[in-house]
């Protein structure tokens, strides 16, 4: 039975697309047939993060509107055979998305894929609501920062009220997981940043993982490689552990320290 997982946050810039790319590549690496869909109509970016921007021909909207078949729009990843990307339109707007259209495409994807990852746009408008509507599970990406936590709380409210699972009697609610990104242990230690415990106490949902602040994330986006497929990094490892938990494995939570090396490390180690 395939699973539809929405990656959402409310707030922009917290790492939804980075997370969608990392989680989907991580699942595919573990042999799961995975597709990742960009729901941010008009502001396509998942293709850049996945490194397939030059291969986009047809998109999600073309499929919804019947201008292209699903298999024509799916871009097969060149690194992982189990992974496919469904890019969105760069020229239309979110009104091109319809609930019926989204449902039809998702149903067709369910036949082929084990995991369907929906990369939500920021905000709580139509695009974000459609990205979460059919979800079985949600990854709520949160930065340890007041506005991000507040927006995550708002999104959790929507997951519990404006989704198919919330509306249909007898269905389990959407299973939401928190994913803390850009976590800076040094700043937490200095009392400058909310701790994991602080955030979890407020949001009251299980934790999927903690991704440390890391220069490897920018590096990976520069070259269009999901972080789990790039050179080994603490952020990449943290995402791989999150993927294992998402698949139901018990992986002990470790809080990786930042990847910003100190002067001493910089002098005596050659890796950055």
């Amino acid at each position: 039975m395939s699973k539809i997982i929405v990656v959402t946050s409310g707030k922009g810039g917290v790492g939804k697309t980075t997370t969608s790319a990392a989680i989907s590549a991580g699942l595919a690496k573990r042999g799961q047939k995975t597709v990742v869909i960009d729901f941010d109509v008009g502001l396509r970016n998942l293709d850049l993060i996945m490194g397939c921007e030059r291969r986009v021909v047809f998109d999600f909207i073309n499929v919804i509107q019947g201008d292209a078949k699903l298999k024509q729009a799916l871009i097969k990843d060149k690194r992982l055979e189990n992974l496919a990307v469904l890019p969105t339109s760069q020229t239309r707007d979110k009104d091109a998305l319809t609930r019926e259209g989204v449902e039809k495409v998702l149903n067709e994807l369910r036949e082929e894929f084990d995991y369907i990852i929906c990369d939500s746009p920021a905000g709580i408008e139509k695009g974000a609501q459609l990205a979460m509507y059919f979800a079985d599970e949600a990854i709520v990406v949160t930065n340890p920062e007041v506005s991000s936590v507040r927006d995550s709380d708002r999104v959790l409210g929507l997951l519990n009220s404006r989704t198919r699972r919330a509306e249909q009697a007898g269905m389990e609610p959407v299973k939401a997981h928190a994913l803390l990104t850009r976590y800076d242990t040094a700043r937490v230690a200095r009392g400058e940043m909310l701790t994991v415990e602080d955030v979890l106490e407020i949001l009251a949902i299980p934790l999927l993982g903690i991704i440390p602040e890391s220069p490897a994330v920018l590096r990976a986006s520069n070259v269009g490689t999901p972080i789990v497929l790039d050179e080994p990094s603490k952020a990449g490892t943290a995402y791989e552990e999150a993927v294992a938990r998402l698949m139901g494995e018990q992986v002990e939570l470790r809080i990786a320290t930042n990847e910003r090396p100190g002067l001493f490390q910089r002098l005596f180690k050659r890796s950055a």
Binding site: Q90, T91, N222
Partner: peptide, 30 residues
């Protein structure tokens, strides 16, 4: 490590050159 910012710049230049020409051109494929 090789500077990846240069790769990022080149990828963007190629992509945006195509996107700026004519956004409607992308819709001719169907």
């Amino acid at each position: 490590k090789a500077a990846t910012a240069q790769t990022a710049k080149e990828r963007l230049q190629i992509l945006l050159a195509h996107e700026r020409i004519d956004t409607k051109a992308q819709d001719i494929l169907p």
